[in-house]
Amino acid sequence: MEPIIEVKNLVKVFHSRGRKITAVNDVSFDVFKGEIFGMIGPNGAGKSTTFSMLTTLIKPTSGSIKVSGFNVDKQDDKIRPLIGIVPQKLSLYPLLTARENLELMGNLYNVPKKEMEEKIDYYLKLVGLEASADRFTGGFSGGMKQRLSVIAAVLHDPEILFWDEPSTGLDPQTRNVIWKLARKFNDEGKTLIFTTHYMEEADNLCDRVAVMDSGKLVALDNPEILKEKTGSTNLEEVFVRFTGEEVRD
């Protein structure tokens, strides 16, 4: 299979109040074109930091990342148009309407106006927000905001989607919608990388799952194979097997 993301010996060190924190410690893996790739791990495992480096938001301390053949360090402006990001923190302008938020994103990605308007109408309908299109997003529920964030990240038809904890804090109905969208976008040929704390979701959706702990990649394989290897009945057991029972800070 053809790798679309190549991560080699990735390290990220933060310096905070004189302390040195190694958030990501010598991590290497590939993500293949067209797969759904899940990242799981306890809080502080380094998932979000890895995510930020993959999405060009922060620079690695050492090691290399190639996204679609471009180097994250030097060609980040080539990478950004190819990826669509749903950040962990819902980031919509509360005083813009749903449609205006989408238009702003479309404009920033230079989507042609006519194409953009068609897509906006299509996607708003797809996620059931067409009736709220002209309302300010400040009054939206968490679920509405998340649906809007997800479609804001696909207007420019990216090759790779990065979703950081897309289902955290949502009701089962909304989570269902989100995962239906994940399947739909994947069927359209997009590669999807996401993080989650819901083992069931990772189990059901992912072609492969990466388990991270304390900045290290501790396991990476198909969920079925991981269960088989560890003799577990579900991914939750796999997770505990690799990362232990201890509660993290």
Binding site: R80, P87, L90, M105, L108
Partner: peptide
């Protein structure tokens, strides 16, 4: 604070 700045900087805008 509300994350919109980071969100904007994730797009191709310089």
């Amino acid at each position: 604070e509300d994350g919109t700045l980071v969100r904007m900087l994730m797009t191709p805008i310089s």
